[in-house]
Amino acid sequence: MVGYFTGVQPLEPEGISITVLPGNGEMFEIPAITDAGHATILFIDAVPEGVLDVFKGIKNSSEFVARMANVIEEHFHPIYERTDIDRFALIDENAFLQTAITPILNPKYEIIDP
């Protein structure tokens, strides 16, 4: 899940931040400049069925923003503390993406001994 947001105060010094929740996933926080101005990219890589895998069924941008606000409040306190919730929004209604990839391990492989 990824979105381009306003209302998040950048890190000092500005840069990319990665927070890992072992067994649940990661949050990447990336500063960006868009046609709409400065934005913060919040990108969650969630372990399926883990505590960060809560974006299923989201149908519109307002639901996405509300869910992301809940996730950062619950699991990413340093980001939440730098967020002005009254200004927290996507840069436009299409500035988010949800996708899921289920990894598949093929147990049939052959070890070749030289």
Rank of each mutant, 00 (worst) to 15 (best):
Q98K: 14
I30L: 04
G25K: 05
T34N: 03
E110K: 04
R82C: 01
E26D: 12
D35V: 00
I16Q: 10
G23S: 00
P78T: 04
D84V: 06
K56H: 15
P48N: 13
D92L: 08
P103V: 11
I111P: 01
I91G: 02
F88W: 05
Q98C: 13
R87W: 05
L90P: 08
E74T: 15
V20H: 10
A95Q: 08
A46F: 10
P10H: 06
V71L: 06
P13I: 11
S62F: 10
D86S: 14
V65P: 02
I44R: 03
I72M: 06
G57L: 03
P114W: 01
N94W: 09
F43K: 12
K56Y: 09
A89R: 09
L21R: 07
L52T: 03
R67S: 11
A46N: 08
G3K: 02
L52K: 02
D84E: 11
P103W: 08
G50T: 09
M27T: 10
N60T: 07
V8L: 02
K56G: 15
V54A: 12
L21S: 05
T40E: 03
F64G: 05
M1Q: 08
V8G: 01
V51R: 15
M27K: 08
L42A: 04
F96A: 03
P78M: 02
